[in-house]
Design a binder for these strands. Structure first.
Length: 639
RNA sequence: GCCGCUUUAGCUCCAACCGGUAGAGCAGAUCCAUGGUAAGGAUAAGGUUGCUGGUUCGACUCCGGCAAGCGGCACCA
């Protein structure tokens, strides 16, 4: 007998060799059904792994996050087993659980196509019926190498393991897999799953190595959960900015115009202009000065900044013209350095904050392009702050505050903050360790003082300095880098920036790069997704549409309302087509226009409007002036 | 860039047998109808089936190349 200590502190005796499943069952039959695996002395145990000594145990029940991970991991094995049956020559890479699912990387002679997934799925269900135990076995390195001699990818992994590492093999039916484990014990527990897609994936994520076929799937504990997840996938498609952007005529792409070079249509531009104006005002309030610099620059400029050496791959190829070599700018910092340097600066002048709506070009890989999310020409509001060292903290903080304000005004929420630091080992960072240490320490200090939580991202810094990235979570649970504040001690050196200090000596200012809204392109994709195309009134391309009940009788009044609204700086239109009222209302709704006005006798007589708000069924009749002040207030409040 | 899939009217679509030059809905056009909140009716029109080579008497259909899009991987200053 062995003693098992439960989380509540009680101990209970069990037969030697009992399993988490056995223990759960002994405690309560209902618990057995809910248990997926367990921590035994803090180590992850499969549901069916024998426990041979006294131990403390913590059962992992289905309601815990790890439980789903374990299930999905087991589902990956199930997938591999089915594939091996159908494609006997298959060899395997890795097959982990991921968020909401799992995948397995597979090499086969025959390519697996999407249409083959149902067949594989069927085989998986057959294996579930077979109720195979998932048996764990410990082997040493030599044994492991022997067992997987036919699996070159597994062999590679085994070879890299330490000689004394505990290597485990999981076997279910005729199938065995190299695996660290944490499994549901028996294939019968994997009931609700679906294979989703096949895609290529480089072995070990290395583009110089083999490309394997990756099958993605998802597994859940109940049919309901599975269906819910499939619904979410569907909803994601519905909210896809590429679909909405087309439907609502926000932007277009055209082969002839160029790959990754989106064209903003009238509706899209109306939204973008509103955003640009908003940011301009916000920046003015925060003491920024706006400038405008060229899209083309000399190669020399980027040699000075260091971009040419470090990031040439991301730039369009240079062009020769009149003995000069020009490049399309990938970013605006060098220009801003030049603006700073145009005259002698005093310590009293600092901080100087330059902001610009910058159009820049990056040569993104063709496979990376996607709607407005990844493009080759992008426009953003970029800014560089020139500060004394003693001003760094307050400037970073003020930039952060501005970022917070903008994100909340746009109806988005900050998910978390990343503090990106260098990684000495990587060697892609500029070499001055003293500066790095100082800059990194400063940012940490600031975040700690302001009690801002952050994730440290080692090795993710820019080549010129550490940065704070602000991550936003969209309505569909995607996390996107929205804003960034980056310290830069390098560019001031390269451009020899100085200011005259109190002491009459020359000093080096610090540059702070501040990105606010990612790019207009990406922001638009996020907002489309966030609002499902139904923009809040202040952003909506068309805010009001006036529809007369009868063209002749009510047209002139509708027209006068429209003019009045436009005078008030609102985006209003009329619908004078010879169609029935219901038809026009329907269209105003499908175009997601915030306010549809119906204008009839009643309204003409009382100088009023009857409006219907997008997504609502009821109508309200109010005096025209009241309507105007209501909607203007909404715009002002950014609703 | 890499792997796989896809591409038919302005848009959307699992229309088109085993190879015989194409079918629908919506939008747009014309005519009729239209006074109160999610599609009124009729008619006509609309296509070198992404581009390009090949096989064939004949290609939307089969084979090759290219391009773009999509799902991923890699990349993302």
């Amino acid at each position: 007998m062995i003693e098992i200590r439960l989380p509540d502190g009680n101990t209970k005796a069990f037969e030697k060799g009992t399993t988490p499943e056995g223990i759960a069952g002994a405690l309560a039959p209902a618990l057995k059904k809910k248990t997926v695996a367990a921590y035994v002395n803090g180590n992850l145990y499969d549901l069916n792994r024998p426990i041979n000594d006294d131990a403390s145990i913590e059962l992992i029940t289905k309601d815990r996050e790890e439980a789903l991970e374990i299930l999905n991991h087991s589902a990956a094995h199930l997938l591999a087993q089915a594939v091996k049956r159908l494609y006997p020559d298959a060899t395997f890479g890795v097959g982990p659980a991921i968020k909401d699912g799992f995948y397995y990387d597979i090499a086969t002679k025959e390519t697996i196509k999407e249409e083959d997934l149902p067949t594989i799925e069927k085989e998986m269900r057959k294996i579930v019926q077979e109720q195979d135990q998932m048996e764990r076995r410990v082997v040493d390195k030599a044994e492991a190498l022997k067992e997987f001699s036919g699996d070159p990818y597994k062999v590679e992994m085994i070879k890299e393991m330490d000689d004394d590492e505990v290597i485990t093999i999981y076997k279910q039916g005729e199938f065995k897999d190299l695996c660290r484990g944490g499994h549901v014990g028996n294939t019968k527990h994997i009931k609700h799953f679906k294979l989703l897609s096949v895609a290529g994936a480089y072995w070990r994520g290395d583009s110089d190595r083999d490309m394997l076929q990756r099958i993605y799937g998802t597994a859940w504990f109940t049919k309901d959960d599975l269906n819910k997840y499939l619904e979410i996938l569907k909803e994601r498609k519905e909210r896809d900015h590429r679909k909405l952007g087309k439907e609502l005529e926000i932007f277009m792409l055209d082969n002839k115009a160029g790959q990754g070079l989106p064209i903003w249509l009238p509706n899209g531009y109306a939204v973008r202009k509103t955003l640009e104006d908003y940011v301009y005002k916000l920046e003015r309030k925060h003491g920024y000065l706006h400038i405008q610099t060229p899209v083309l620059g000399t190669k020399e400029l980027y040699e000075t900044s260091g971009h040419w050496d470090h990031y040439r791959d991301g730039m369009f190829p240079p062009m020769e013209y009149e003995d000069q070599t020009y490049v399309l700018r990938p970013m605006s910092c060098p220009h801003h350095m030049i603006v700073y340097n145009r005259k002698l600066r005093s310590y009293r002048d600092l901080p100087i904050r330059y902001a610009e709506i910058v159009t820049q070009h990056r040569h993104e890989a063709s496979g990376a392009l996607s709607g407005l999310e990844r493009v080759r020409q992008m426009t953003l509001t970029d800014s560089h702050i020139f500060a004394r060292r003693d001003q760094i903290k307050s400037e970073v903080l003020s930039a952060y505050n501005l970022i917070q304000q903008a994100i909340s005004d746009l109806g988005l929420t900050i998910d978390y903050i990343e503090l990106a630091l260098r990684d000495e080992a990587k060697g892609k960072f500029h070499p001055d360790d003293v500066l790095w240490d100082e800059a990194e320490a400063l940012l940490k200090e600031l975040l700690d003082e302001e009690k801002i939580d952050y994730k440290v991202m080692k090795g993710e810094a820019a080549f010129y300095g550490p940065k704070i990235d602000v991550q936003v979570r969209t309505a569909m649970d995607r996390v996107i880098t929205m804003s960034t504040v980056q310290l830069d001690f390098l560019l001031p050196e390269r451009f020899d920036l100085t200011y005259i200090g109190k002491d009459g000596e020359k000093h080096r200012p610090v540059v702070i790069h501040r990105g606010l809204i990612s790019t207009w392109e990406r922001l638009m994709s996020i907002l489309l997704e966030q609002y499902k195309g139904a923009f809040p009134t202040w952003l909506a391309p068309e805010q009001v549409r006036a529809i007369p009940v009868n063209l002749e009788a009510h047209g002139p009044y509708a027209e006068s309302i429209n003019n009045r609204l436009i005078d008030e700086d609102l985006r209003s239109t009329t619908d004078f087509r010879e169609e029935k009222l219901g038809y026009k209302i329907r269209e105003a709704q499908t175009k997601k226009i915030p306010y549809s006005l119906v204008i009839g006798d009643n309204e003409v007589e009382n100088n009023s409007v009857t409006y219907r708000k997008y997504g609502e069924k009821e109508q309200n009749t109010v005096p025209l002036e009241d309507f105007i002040s209501m909607i203007k207030k909404e715009v002002k409040d950014r609703k």
